[in-house]
Amino acid sequence: MDKIIGISNIEIYEFCKLNLETGEKKFFDDYSGFEKFDGFYFKDRENFFVIFASEEGPKLYFKDNVYQLRKDLHISLKEMDTVREFRIEEYNICIKYRTSPYIGFDVWSDQEDVDLFYQIEQSYKNDEYYKKFTK
């Protein structure tokens, strides 16, 4: 597994180089210094969550830990007005976040484009999703 991965923010035009061993993050407002992108990230004041491609398939990075995304996990997304709760039971991951202001912002865009947790919850049992995140 590469120690440093290039990832892009799922909601806004922002990019990050993440060192998976140290947790060091470097943020950029353009992608000129990136050879490739390995995945996507979500961040708010409390959370930094990443899904990225690896030779073993999709991996998740959360709170300085790397987890394997698998089809047998129990993943849920609960919608409560403008707040959502994303949960992966087996990894004890629970992220509460506000609905993105970018949902519905672009008439050509759908919810999957801007909500990484929705995308994961809807797609994690799909073989095509695993192919997309396998190097």
Score class of each variant (00 low, 15 high):
Lys132Thr: 03
Lys43Ile: 07
Asp30Val: 01
Asp115Val: 06
Glu56Tyr: 14
Phe27Lys: 14
Tyr130His: 14
Cys16Asp: 10
Glu21Lys: 08
Cys94Thr: 15
Ala53Leu: 04
Glu90Thr: 01
Lys135Gly: 05
Lys96Phe: 03
Ile120His: 08
Thr22Leu: 07
Leu18Ile: 02
Asp30His: 10
Phe34His: 06
Lys43Tyr: 12
Asp2Cys: 10
Pro101Trp: 14
Pro58Leu: 11
Phe37Cys: 07
Asn126His: 08
Ile5Trp: 03
Asp113Glu: 12
Phe62Arg: 08
Asn126Glu: 12
Phe49Leu: 08
Lys25Val: 00
Arg84Leu: 12
Glu79Phe: 12
Glu35Ala: 12
Gly39Phe: 08
Asp113Cys: 08
Leu73Val: 09
Ile7Asp: 01
Tyr130Met: 04
Asn92Met: 09
Ile95Thr: 05
Gly33Pro: 03
Leu77Gly: 04
Val114Met: 10
Tyr124Trp: 09
Glu24Ser: 09
Tyr31Val: 00
Pro58Thr: 11
Lys17Trp: 01
Asp115Trp: 02
Ile12His: 13
Ile10Arg: 15
Tyr31Gln: 13
Asp106Tyr: 10
Glu21Gly: 04
Phe105Thr: 12
Arg84His: 09
Phe86Tyr: 09
Glu89Asp: 15
Glu121Trp: 02
Phe105Val: 07
Lys3Cys: 00
Arg98Met: 09
Thr82Asn: 10
Glu55Gly: 04
Gln122Arg: 07
Arg45Ser: 11
Tyr118Asn: 02
Glu11Ser: 10
Tyr97Val: 02
Tyr124Ser: 08
Leu60Gly: 04
Asn65Arg: 13
Phe105Gln: 14
Glu21Gln: 12
Val114Leu: 09
Glu46Met: 13
Tyr97His: 03
Val83Gly: 03
Ile10Met: 11
Phe42Cys: 03
Tyr118Phe: 05
Asn65Phe: 10
Cys16Tyr: 05
Phe34Asn: 04
Phe117Trp: 11
Phe28His: 08
Leu69Ser: 01
Cys94Ile: 12
Glu112Leu: 14
Lys71Pro: 02
Asp72Met: 05
Glu55Cys: 03
Tyr118Thr: 00
Gln111Leu: 07
Glu11Val: 04
Phe27Gln: 11
Asp127Ser: 11
Lys43Asn: 14
Tyr118Lys: 01
Leu69Cys: 07
Ser32Pro: 00
Val114Arg: 12
Ala53Val: 01
Leu18Arg: 00
Asn126Arg: 06
Gly23Phe: 10
Lys78Phe: 06
Thr82Gly: 00
Pro58Asn: 11
Trp108Asn: 14
Glu24Trp: 02
Ile88Asn: 06
Gly39Met: 09
Arg45Asn: 11
Trp108Glu: 13
Tyr13Gln: 14
Tyr41Leu: 00
Phe42Pro: 00
Phe105Arg: 15
Phe52Asp: 00
Lys3Ala: 02
Pro58Asp: 11
Phe105Trp: 15
Lys63Val: 05
Gly33His: 03
Lys71Arg: 11
Lys125Ala: 03
Gln119Asn: 05
Asp64Glu: 15
Gln68Cys: 01
Lys132Cys: 04
Ile75Pro: 04
Lys3Thr: 00
Val107Ala: 08
Leu20Lys: 09
Glu56Lys: 14
Val107Thr: 13
Glu46Tyr: 15
